[in-house]
Design a binder for these strands. Structure first.
Lengths: 149, 149
DNA sequence: TCCAAGTAGTCAACTTACTTGTCGAAAAGA
DNA sequence: TCTTTTCGACAAGTAAGTTGACTACTTGGA
């Protein structure tokens, strides 16, 4: 179980290490209490400024109730606010606060730094190979995203 | 959020795709009902034939109660059996059944095949680079394994 | 050899992050 | 207009973990 198919184990471990490191880091820069699930919510909200909770749920692949709970939690933590929807009086849009944007910036900065460190140990050219190979793998694969971190 | 630090997103997505594909495949070869968490239990049990539930829990990073529940479930599904511990009358060892070993074999075979397919699209030499780079990443990282799939 | 401390596993209650189901209010399509 | 759909709220249930307390057995030291 360690030669053939080793990449699967490595992939799982690398993923885990990355997520753990990120959250450990975030906790030290004023963003404790975030769970992996929040990451993709942030990513979606950052490029869909008028998204509703239901929309967000659809993107994350969870029910609207779960999405509502997530938004409740992010609201309580100060990362998003709910505002009246411009055209639909049933709906409310979910908007990132300044604190939300700050967190996103810090995630991006941390990943960029982690990537630089990795490039230092294995070489930038090799890291490019990794990136391309991963792109090929996920492009090839069937179906829905929903990375669930 | 897509150039610098893109590898983080790719890693998360690739992991997700891999796990989903694996479980979809397992369901088609007579091993439906398995959850990601079972994978590492199998891996550990395959190389620690006299492991107890508590030991397994320590390896997986969960409480003994959670480990016991996991073993209950695997027993019910026919993947493991509990047997008297050879020297400790408090303890019971958890042993893989034939069905358990069959599942492990199928996982290994599937990963090997997935790796071959991947190598076909990106080239075997590039896949070696990926493997080495991932090894370097997880080796570099601090601390506990516990991939939690 | 006995006793205190430690450990394997069980039972019970609670927490978290979801799920399904139902509903009122508003929107949208025929 | 009228029917159907959709947004979000409320309620209850489930799955997979947690902490805490307990019994049965083991172990190591006085």
């Amino acid at each position: 179980m360690s030669d053939r198919g080793e990449i699967a184990v490595l992939l799982a471990t690398a993923y885990r290490v990355m997520v753990d490191d990120l959250h450990r880091h975030l906790a030290t820069v004023g963003h404790a209490g975030l769970r992996p699930a929040h990451g993709f919510a942030f990513q979606y909200l950052s490029r869909h400024p008028t998204a509703t909770a239901v929309e967000l749920g659809a993107h994350l692949g969870v029910t609207k109730q779960a999405a509502t709970q997530l938004v409740d939690e992010l609201t309580r933590l100060g990362y998003v606010t709910r505002e009246a929807h411009p055209t639909d009086r049933r709906a409310r849009t979910v908007r990132l606060t300044e604190r939300g944007w700050d967190c996103i910036e810090k995630v991006v900065a941390y990943w960029a730094q982690a990537e630089r460190r990795w490039a230092e140990t294995v070489g930038a050219d090799r890291l490019t190979v990794v990136r391309d190979a991963l792109r090929a793998y996920v492009a090839d694969a069937p179906g829905g995203l929903r990375p669930t971190w």
